[in-house]
Simulated scan of single mutants.
Amino acid sequence: MKEIQPSELAAKLKAGEALNIIDVREDEEVEEGMIPGAKHVRLGDIPERIGELDSSKHYYMVCRSGARSGRATEFLESNGIEATNMAGGMLAWEDEIELPKK
Rank of each mutant, 00 (worst) to 15 (best):
Y59W: 07
L43Y: 11
K12I: 02
M61D: 06
R25S: 01
E26N: 07
E28W: 12
E82L: 12
A67Y: 04
G33H: 07
L43Q: 09
L53R: 04
S55L: 00
G80F: 07
G70V: 03
I50W: 05
V24M: 05
E31S: 12
N20M: 01
I81S: 06
R25E: 00
K39F: 00
E48D: 12
H40I: 06
P6L: 09
K12C: 01
I35L: 11
E17L: 05
S55A: 13
A18V: 09
I35M: 08
L76T: 02
L76W: 05
Y59N: 04
R64E: 13
I46N: 01
N85I: 03
V24D: 08
Q5P: 04
A18R: 12
E28A: 11
M61E: 07
P36K: 08
P47V: 12
G66E: 10
V24R: 06
G70R: 04
A10V: 01
K39R: 12
P47T: 13
R25H: 05
M61A: 07
A83H: 06
S55R: 13
A11M: 13
A38M: 02
E82N: 10
A67R: 10
R42P: 14
T73E: 11
G37F: 02
L53C: 10
S56L: 00
E28F: 14
G33R: 11
L76G: 05
D23P: 03
A10Q: 15
N85Y: 04
E52N: 08
S7Q: 15
G70K: 02
S69T: 00
G33K: 11
I50Q: 10
K39H: 02
A38I: 05
A38T: 01
K39T: 13
E8A: 15
S7W: 08
E8S: 15
E52K: 06
E17M: 07
I46V: 14
G70I: 01
K14Q: 15
G51C: 08
E48S: 13
G44C: 07
Y60P: 09
C63F: 01
L13D: 03
D27Y: 11
L43D: 00
G88T: 11
Y59K: 05
I22S: 05
L19M: 03
Q5A: 15
R64G: 12
E82P: 00
M34S: 09
M86N: 09
V41Y: 02
S55I: 00
A38N: 03
E17W: 08
E32Q: 15
E26C: 10
G66S: 10
S55N: 11
E48R: 14
A11T: 13
S55Y: 00
E77M: 15
E48Y: 10
E3W: 05
R64T: 09
E74T: 12
S7K: 15
E74C: 01
E82I: 03
K39V: 13
T73R: 10
D54C: 07
E52G: 06
V62S: 06
P47S: 13
Y59F: 12
R68K: 12
S78C: 02
G70N: 06
A18D: 14
G44D: 03
A72I: 01
T84Q: 06
N79T: 01
V41G: 00
G44S: 04
A15V: 09
G33Y: 09
